[in-house]
Simulated scan of single mutants.
Amino acid sequence: MQNTEDTAQIRSLIETWTQAVHRGDLAAVMADHASDIVMFDVPPPERGVRGADEYRDCWPPFFEFQAGGGSFDIDELEVVAGGEVAYAYALLQCDTPEGRAAHPDRRLRLTLGLRKEGGRWVVAHEHHSFTLAP
């Protein structure tokens, strides 16, 4: 059974995280992620990013993209929460102004796996992808 309080907490966590990414606020980006986070991202490495240190290290280049006008804005967000685990999936606008103008329907696909640790939700898995361009 879906817990609406947990769903609301997770939705807020994700919205706060995307705002932190957009601002380039590394401490806030890291705040609600598990120490053993696994992320499969669009850029390498092929086997993903594993652990908080590797996760932290992957953000500065993306912040440079953001500083150059890149977007990271939620278009759609769905959250499914159980008692101890949850998942969320979203579509985000994530591109340069030129890219958005050329491909206005292109979206970043985001999937998150969450678990409760000490009574609070943390992101344990993060997966980003784009479709292949024609």
Rank of each mutant, 00 (worst) to 15 (best):
G83W: 01
R50I: 10
C58Y: 01
A81M: 07
Q66S: 06
A31R: 15
R56P: 09
G48P: 09
L26H: 05
R56H: 12
A86L: 10
S35T: 12
F62P: 04
Y89T: 08
C58G: 05
Y89S: 06
F63H: 04
V42N: 07
F63Q: 02
L77A: 07
A88R: 07
A27I: 07
D57V: 00
V49H: 15
I37S: 02
V29T: 02
D57T: 10
P44R: 03
R23K: 13
D73V: 11
V79Y: 02
E84N: 14
V21I: 13
F62R: 14
E64N: 10
A28V: 03
P44F: 00
E64A: 13
A81V: 08
G82A: 12
G51L: 01
G82N: 09
A88K: 05
P60R: 09
E46F: 13
R23A: 13
F40Q: 07
D73F: 02
E78Q: 12
S71D: 03
W59A: 02
G70L: 03
A86C: 10
A27H: 09
A28K: 08
W59F: 10
L26Q: 00
Q66D: 04
Y87F: 15
Y55S: 05
V42E: 09
E64R: 12
R47Q: 13
V38F: 14
R23G: 04
G82H: 10
F63P: 05
V49A: 01
A86W: 03
R23Y: 03
E46I: 07
E76I: 06
A90T: 07
A27S: 12
A52S: 09
V85C: 10
R23H: 05
S35P: 02
I37P: 06
P43E: 05
